[in-house]
Structures are given as C-alpha cells and as structure tokens.
C-alpha cells in the first residue's frame, strides 16, 4: 500500500477551484500589459507590449490622482485598522480579565453591533457628519470604522487564552498599576492576536466602498475603491480608457496581495488556541 494515496477526483476539484479563483487575477495581469490596440486584437492569454506605456498614462491621468487614491487607501486602512486594533485589544482585555458589574451587559450590547446592517448607519452617519461640517473629510471615513464588534469578540477570546491570571496577580503584588499591567504585561502577550485583528480590519477598510462613496465628494480624498469606480463610470463607454482602468485595477490589488502572501501565518479566523502555530 502506498504511504499516502492520492485521490484524483478530490485533487482535481480543488485545482479547478484554484483556477477559477486565479482566472480574473491572471486576466488583469495579462491585459494590463496590452497597448490600447492590442486589447481587442491579441488573444485573451497573450501578453502585450504596452505595460510601461499604460502605467505612464495612468501616472499622467489627472496629475497622478491614482497614486493619491492609493495613498488615501493606505491612510484609511492603516490608520483605521491600527486604532481599531488598539480599541479592540483594550476592550477585549478588560472583558476577559476583570469581573465587574455590567460586564455581560456591555459585552452583549457591543457584540449586538455585529447584527446592525451598515446601511442603517452609513446614511445617518453622513447626515450627522455634514451637520458638523465634517462630511467629505478624512475623519468621516476614518472614525466610523474604528469600532468593530467582531474584533472585540476576537480580542476577548484571545486575551483569555494568552494572558495568564498568575502573571497579572504577580504584577499587582509588585504594586504595578492596572494601566501598567495592560501596557507592559497584557499587550505584549496579545501581539500575535492583534496582528490578525489588524490584518482583517485593514482588508475590510481597504475594500470598503459604501461608506467613502457616501461620505466623500472631493476626488482628492477618495480611496482606491471609489476612485476606480469613478474612473469606470467615466470610461465604460470609451474603449480608449479601458487600458487605464485595467492597469489601475491591477496596481490596486498588488499591495493587498503582497500583504496577504507575506503574512500567511496570521490569516486565521479562530483565536481561541491562544498561540499562533506557524
């Protein structure tokens, strides 16, 4: 008997799924290399000769607004995910490691936020921000995305598993304040879980379309999603703009795919194990 039998059918099904998932990504990779004329004449999977020209054209489009969108996405996703991770970690630690009146009530109310559809929030958030004169600012996109109930839940689960009570007890006997215990004992132990929370929040904010689409009017503040949408809405009927849109789409997914491939071991959906296994 062979050491490890291989099922042709299961492997075939899985590889078929992989090909389906890679199809649009490889298509955009190949299409972005095609000069305007080549897009309709070359075969779908034949690379063209126009990649550099396409990138140059995109750089020139409205004085390089595309790179502005890229930078904005980094600011929204990076800043938002960082703040979100800190708020979630501190809340999760408090909920996991302290017994206090109202703990379950606070946890349940915060977690209940998961069930609130974002639609009920985005429109009134816009109206309230505009009353304060803050719609169409970076804050309008950044602030509403900091609170993320599911991340608080994950942080609570992770804190209970990763922060030993005995360590906190020992710190208290040595006279450390609760704030110091949080900063010097709990947070360092929670770092692997916080990286996971950060990554999921980063992707969620980077991919968000509805909130910035509603909040922003000035295209200098757009993230990539809204920017590419406006480029598409302007260019869908003009095949001469297709190269620009396709090249923009390709460049826009490179940062996330890089993040995703380099941080493989942190992409987990279950943090109850405490420590991450490599």
């Amino acid at each position: 008997m062979s050491r490890r039998p291989v099922g042709a059918l299961p492997t075939g099904l899985l590889v078929l799924g992989a090909i389906y998932c890679l199809l649009p990504v490889s298509w955009v990779l190949i299409s972005a290399s095609k000069a305007p004329g080549e897009l309709f004449t070359l075969g779908t999977l034949t690379p063209g000769t126009g990649l550099l020209e396409n990138v140059r054209e995109l750089n020139a489009y409205r004085h390089g607004v595309f790179w502005r969108w890229m930078l904005n996405s980094v600011v929204y996703a990076g800043g938002g995910a960082l703040l979100s991770t800190l708020v979630s970690a501190v809340s999760g630690f408090a909920l996991a490691k302290y017994a206090f009146p109202g703990r379950n009530l606070i946890f349940n109310v915060l977690i209940g936020g998961i069930l609130v559809p974002s639609v009920v929030l985005a429109v009134p958030q816009y109206l309230l921000f505009s009353k304060l004169g803050m719609a169409d600012t970076y804050w309008a996109v950044l602030l509403p995305q900091i609170l993320h109930p599911y991340s608080i839940y994950l942080a609570r689960v992770y804190a209970s598993a990763a922060v030993p009570d005995s360590l906190l007890e020992a710190g208290r006997i040595d006279g450390a304040s609760e704030g110091r215990l949080l900063a010097r004992v709990a947070m360092p132990l929670m770092v692997p879980g916080m990286v996971t929370i950060f990554l999921f929040q980063f992707v969620a904010i980077w991919n968000n379309f509805l909130l910035p689409f509603i909040m922003l009017g000035d295209d200098g503040k757009f993230p990539l999603t809204v920017g590419l949408y406006t480029l598409l809405a302007a260019g869908a009927n003009q095949p001469s703009l297709y190269n620009l849109i396709i090249t923009g789409a390709l460049l826009s997914i490179i940062p996330l795919i890089a993040l995703f491939l380099t941080m493989q071991r942190y992409w987990r959906t279950d943090l109850s194990g405490g420590a991450l296994k490599g």
Binding site: A18, F209, I253
Partner: peptide, 12 residues
Amino acid sequence: AIFLPYAVPGVV
C-alpha cells in the same frame, strides 16, 4: 489561490 479573491475589493 482560493483565499486570494478575499484580497480583491468588491469594486475591483
């Protein structure tokens, strides 16, 4: 490969 589309925004 199958998880990769998660890194692609819905718009894209």
